[in-house]
Design a protein around this nucleic acid. Structure first.
Lengths: 232, 232
DNA sequence: GGCCTGTATTCTGTATACAGTATTATAGTG
DNA sequence: CACTATAATACTGTATACAGAATACAGGCC
């Protein structure tokens, strides 16, 4: 917890964004553990900025659901419960289905070619055992972003992006397994084909399966984590 | 636009909340017009507070979608386009359907009795021509809140509440028509019965209709508003 | 020994000050 | 008269200061 917070420098971004990104990735990679208190002055000192941008960054994190705030008591890293995970996944599944339906209707054919390239890029990374899991996760997200964007619904894009963030902490876990990675590439291919055919029914079935698999993988990884925690 | 911003005083609420509520209702009731710039110092002076809580309140409004911010240029009251309204309603309909399904599964019978009372309260207000439309709108929302809560999904509750907020500016309009009010009470009754029977399919059909009607009513009221604007 | 109370300390909430960027107004030039 | 350059202004972004609430700890009391 005395982990080194390295500012993700970027000359021309507002400080609050830089602080936000820094804290966010610290939470997601566990440098800031769930339940840990986030004190404005401490963080400000450690990051070499004043309290103001830290404060604003913490408020942004609260909206992402990564931090919870209690009035006059400050913020602490959110401790995601299984219940909350279920809640998020329930909403997310419903919206992923909406998204793929609308994408089947509305996505321009040209964008499908780009989507294909995204799928190919993911496959390449997934096949390489040595590749960085974070990069792999980002590539997976890039693929799904094409579906989101295909809906042409800005609000839907925003809500889905936010819901996905809630699960960042688990996303890397389920990519470790090589079998899962293989399944994922196959699923991506199938989804892509369904969208190309503009067959909403088929695409919905596929994406439902895709989410269910992901959900199951996350639960498994939580189980394992619990077991390990018990052992030690 | 030099409208009087009266602070909604509340001794023990943080100032940012008070400012947030004040600005929010000013936007929703049109005291602050769409497109109008929100300048921190000006607002702070007018409300008799410093820039800090104003700043935080504006950030909160941004998340509600009532305000848009451009870096280094400040904030202005969001100008909702028909496109955005469509986007919100598309997402909202999908989640209202999810909500009623889950409510049919999960709502405790005891809560259904409370829901019935909420429906009755709405009917009473709706029947009285002289009643306050804002109060009526709130009563309508209270009814729907029971559905949301019946899902037991905290995240779903939050997302739906936020989406509903986006349409506050229009909500009063479509309650003015007495025929619509009558339809609404009938629809509420029917929904309630379907939930009591735990008949998800029926309830979904009803709520879809309910949302579609609302959507149509809002479009009509926009049309009328546009016509009036053209006339003058 | 356990509980309560008073005090010290730490932290948030709010106000204010300062710096630097956008925007607007003004003057000068072709 | 238009158009550019420059200066003034107005605002946000960031830092800092101050006040009061929450917490922790110590000492007294039962």
């Amino acid at each position: 917890m005395a982990g080194e917070l390295k500012m993700e420098m970027n000359e021309f971004l507002p400080l609050r964004e830089v602080v936000f990104n820094t804290l966010r990735s610290a939470i997601l990679r566990g440098t800031l553990a769930p339940g840990e208190r986030l004190m404005e002055l401490t963080l400000a000192d450690r990051l070499g900025v004043s309290r103001t941008p830290v404060r604003e960054a913490i408020r942004m994190l609260e909206h992402e659901g990564l931090v919870i705030m209690r009035p006059r008591r400050g913020a602490q890293v959110a401790n995601i419960t299984v219940q909350e995970l279920n809640d998020v996944l329930e909403v997310r599944k419903s919206l992923e289905i909406l998204a793929i339906e609308k994408a089947c209707e509305r996505m321009p054919s040209a964008d499908m070619d780009e989507m294909e390239r995204a799928a190919a890029a993911f496959e390449e990374l997934a096949a390489d055992d040595s590749s960085d899991l974070t990069a792999l996760a980002e590539s997976d997200e890039a693929f799904h972003d094409f579906i989101y964007r295909g809906t042409g619904n800005q609000r839907l894009i925003r809500v889905l992006a936010n819901l996905r963030e809630q699960m960042y902490r688990f996303r890397v876990e389920y990519l470790k397994d090589e079998d899962i990675r293989k399944d994922l590439t196959a699923e991506h291919r199938a989804i892509l084909e369904a969208v190309r055919k503009r067959s909403a029914a088929e695409a919905v079935a596929l994406i439902s399966k895709h989410i269910d698999n992901q959900q199951k993988a996350i639960y498994d990884s939580i189980q394992n984590a619990d077991k390990e925690a018990t052992r030690s």
